[in-house]
Amino acid sequence: MSVNTYLSDEERLIIESATIGIAGAGGLGSNCAMHLVRAGLKRLVIADFDEVSESNLNRQFFFRDQIGRKKVDALAENLRRIEPDLDLALHDIRLTSENAGPAFEECQVIVEALDSAEAKSMLLGALLPMDKPIISASGLAGWGRSCEIGQRRIGRNLILIGDTTSDIRSGLAPVSPRVGIAAAMEANAVVALLLGLEI
């Protein structure tokens, strides 16, 4: 039984057999994973080296009693509260240009959900040659301007979500509404890709 009872049998087959990679379990990754599980995805590969901290609770899918725990473990616990029957591959690693490819080799679609511009660029450089669809995000900090968080296809395999300008380094805070919008858009793009729908 899927948590998403709105799927047709054909859609369920596609969704439940897909393996999706999520690079980062912070604001984007934890919320994107939550949306994917609610959509009916059962097989996720999640990579993150970090631990839950108090400053994460303003936007990330964690709870106060999980502070100090590894993000991949805390996220797995939370996702299994939505859907106990999950096949999760958890990598407690800092992603590098060397280990990113092997970590997500089995995935059909990979979600870039890292924080710094340098890490995002590194990951895209490592994963784009794999010729798999990648959903990335750039420009989601601050408040307001929801409709400026757009999405565009770049090249054959990259879908970029965000306004490409709202940078936390310019003093804008990473806060739940805009980060959540981008995370939901990343998840929506994954499911649309899997189902062959317009992104």
């Binding site: 995002k120 660029s121 980060v179």
Partner: peptide, 10 residues
Amino acid sequence: LNVFRIVSGG
């Protein structure tokens, strides 16, 4: 030619 900026935040 198109250029898309990658900025920090997540």
